[in-house]
């Protein structure tokens, strides 16, 4: 009994009327419809969101991503996923204009979708994308000591400096067996075939406030 996907026709017409762009459709094995629409600029996001809200769509989530894997390319885009019965519509908004590379700010859609609040705060802190008139654009999950937009650059500064986590663990494992591998740059467990060391640990923040307490010396108070 494949569900009658009237819902994807409704969404198709609504988006076409709002943004004059046609949505491409793909279907999974069970005939659930997946719509893909790429807007030209950030202005047409609001009418699209309004159209979808009026047709009872529910905002599933938002995914901000860097288009290519280049060193620190600024070609960012945000994919807004909406769910309606058995249809998922993904509206992608590119954040770069042909000429300049600086990412464009994106308008907030919290007026139609209450749960957009946390999603927007998250890509604001993770990808450093600014949001226009968001209720409270504070940090959500990322700690203040980590630089915003940590996910947009492929290898944040911390990777090189802190890359030692896996390597020195393995050195100690091999040393326990008497094999010294400090020099060699061989495969260290979580090696990334693209050659970039995979360890993105935190940058060397100021010395931790608690010096490690040795087991025997009771340090506190009396």
């Amino acid at each position: 009994m494949t569900p009658t996907n009237k819902s994807n026709e409704i969404v198709h017409d609504a988006l076409l009327q709002a943004t004059e762009l046609a949505t491409q459709w793909t279907f999974d094995v069970k005939q659930n419809a997946f719509g893909w629409l790429r807007l030209n600029n950030t202005e047409s996001l609001r009418p699209a969101a309004k159209a979808l809200a009026e047709n009872g769509a529910r905002l599933c989530t938002m995914t901000a991503y860097v288009e290519e894997r280049g060193e620190n390319s600024n070609k960012k885009a945000i994919a807004y996923h909406f769910a309606l019965a058995n249809t998922v519509v993904t509206v992608t908004v590119p954040l770069y204009t042909a000429g300049c590379d600086t990412p464009v700010a994106v308008p907030s859609i919290t007026s139609w979708f209450r749960n957009a609040d946390w999603n927007e705060r998250e890509f604001h802190e993770m990808f450093g994308i600014d949001i226009v008139d968001h209720p409270n654009p504070k940090r959500l999950f990322l700690d203040e000591r980590l630089d915003a937009g940590i996910m947009s650059s492929l290898i944040p500064f911390s990777a090189m400096v802190h890359g030692a986590a896996t390597r020195n663990l393995w050195e100690q494992v091999m040393a326990a067996k008497g094999v010294d591998i400090t020099g060699s740059d061989g495969s260290y467990g979580l090696e990334n075939p693209h050659g970039a060391p995979t360890d993105i640990s935190t940058p060397p923040i100021e010395e931790p406030t608690f010096t490690p307490v040795s087991a025997t010396a009771p340090e506190n108070g009396n």
Binding site: V173, I181, S187, Y188, G189
Partner: peptide, 25 residues
């Protein structure tokens, strides 16, 4: 080694290249 998500397997030729060390931590 390729499949291990915990990075627990290390396969490395030994110095004399007469064989390889297979370590699971």
């Amino acid at each position: 080694h390729h499949m291990c998500a915990g990075g627990a397997i290390r396969i490395e030729d030994n110095e004399e290249k007469t064989g390889y060390n297979f370590t699971v931590w």
